[in-house]
Lab assay of single mutants.
Amino acid sequence: IRCIGVSNRDFVEGMSGGTWVDVVLEHGGCVTVMAQDKPTVDIELVTTTVSNMAEVRSYCYEASISDMASDSRCPTQGEAYLDKQSDTQYVCKRTLVDRGWGNGCGLFGKGSLVTCAKFTCSKKMTGKSIQPENLEYRIMLSVHGSQHSGMIVNDTGYETDENRAKVEVTPNSPRAEATLGGFGSLGLDCEPRTGLDFSDLYYLTMNNKHWLVHKEWFHDIPLPWHAGADTGTPHWNNKEALVEFKDAHAKRQTVVVLGSQEGAVHTALAGALEAEMDGAKGKLFSGHLKCRLKMDKLRLKGVSYSLCTAAFTFTKVPAETLHGTVTVEVQYAGTDGPCKIPVQMAVDMQTLTPVGRLITANPVITESTENSKMMLELDPPFGDSYIVIGVGDKKITHHWHRSGSTIGKAFEATVRGAKRMAVLGDTAWDFGSVGGVFNSLGKGIHQIFGAAFKSLFGGMSWFSQILIGTLLVWLGLNTKNGSISLTCLALGGVMIFLSTAVSA
Rank of each mutant, 00 (worst) to 15 (best):
T327I: 10
A452Q: 12
L424P: 11
C339K: 07
V328N: 06
I152D: 02
L141R: 02
L424I: 07
M140E: 15
G109V: 07
D83L: 13
L498Q: 10
K246S: 09
G417E: 05
I484H: 09
A346T: 11
L258N: 10
D220N: 14
S286E: 15
S368E: 00
T321F: 07
G263F: 11
H399D: 15
L258D: 10
T335R: 10
T254V: 13
Y81D: 11
Q465F: 10
D98M: 12
G287Q: 01
T126P: 00
S385M: 13
L498I: 01
T126Y: 01
V388F: 12
T321I: 10
L472F: 12
P171I: 05
N362R: 01
G17R: 02
D230K: 04
V328T: 14
S372M: 10
L107K: 04
K454A: 06
K290M: 07
S146M: 13
M421A: 03
V415P: 04
S464L: 12
A319S: 15
S499K: 12
Q131E: 13
T360C: 05
H249I: 07
M277G: 07
H399A: 00
V41Y: 08
K373M: 15
G435L: 00
G459M: 13
G444Y: 07
I448D: 12
A346L: 03
K419D: 09
D278H: 15
M495A: 03
L471C: 06
K128A: 05
K340E: 10
L284A: 01
G150D: 15
W400K: 08
M34D: 09
G78M: 09
V50N: 04
N238P: 02
H219R: 10
S499H: 10
W101I: 04
D22N: 09
D161C: 00
D161P: 04
P354F: 00
D200I: 01
P224H: 05
L376D: 03
K283A: 12
M349F: 12
T327S: 14
G282D: 02
V303F: 08
P174E: 10
K419I: 08
S483K: 13
V12E: 11
L284W: 14
D296C: 10
L358Q: 07
C308H: 10
P222I: 10
R193C: 03
A319K: 04
S70T: 14
V326I: 14
P354G: 13
G259H: 10
G390V: 03
D379F: 03
P234W: 11
P363R: 01
G271P: 11
S142G: 15
T397S: 15
L107T: 02
N481Y: 09
D200N: 15
H288I: 08
G302C: 00
A241K: 15
K480T: 15
D83G: 15
N439Y: 15
K239E: 12
A176M: 10
D83I: 12
E276S: 02
E262N: 09
A270S: 09
V33C: 07
K84P: 13
N163D: 15
E13P: 01
E320R: 09
D87L: 01
S7I: 01
W225P: 04
R299H: 11
Y386E: 02
Y61H: 11
E159M: 06
S146D: 00
L96W: 12
D430S: 06
V437I: 14
P363V: 01
Q465M: 08
G337M: 13
R292H: 15
V423R: 00
R299K: 12
V257N: 09
L491Q: 08
C105F: 11
Q253F: 10
A241H: 13
V423M: 14
L491G: 12
W20H: 05
C190L: 03
G383P: 03
I4A: 06
G17V: 08
G417Q: 11
V169T: 03
T397W: 00
V257A: 12
M495W: 07
V355F: 00
G18K: 00
S260E: 06
I152K: 01
I359P: 07
A310P: 00
T19A: 13
A333C: 10
T76Y: 04
E216K: 13
S304G: 00
Y158P: 05
S122I: 04
G404L: 02
Y203I: 13
G195D: 14
I341N: 13
A346I: 03
R402C: 11
V23D: 09
L141P: 13
N237P: 00
E367I: 01
F453Y: 13
S499L: 01
F463K: 00
I396L: 14
T335W: 13
L82P: 01
R138D: 03
S129Q: 13
R57Q: 05
D98A: 07
A264W: 13
G109R: 01
I341K: 05
G458E: 13
F119H: 10
A319Q: 04
P381S: 05
G195L: 06
R164T: 11
V502A: 14
V213D: 09
T315E: 09
W225D: 07
V347D: 10
C291Y: 11
L196G: 00
G184L: 02
S66N: 08
A117H: 04
D430I: 05
N238S: 11
V502L: 10
T309G: 11
D37M: 14
L293E: 04
M460Y: 13
C116V: 08
Q253V: 05
P381Y: 04
L242H: 05
W236M: 10
K454Y: 09
G282S: 00
V33G: 05
R416V: 02
I359G: 03
G324Q: 11
T254R: 00
K443H: 14
C488S: 12
T170K: 10
N154G: 04
S405A: 01
H288G: 13
L300V: 15
G5P: 00
Y158D: 10
P381M: 08
G425E: 11
F11N: 07
T315R: 07
R402W: 06
L223F: 03
G356H: 06
M460T: 13
K128P: 00
R2K: 11
S72A: 15
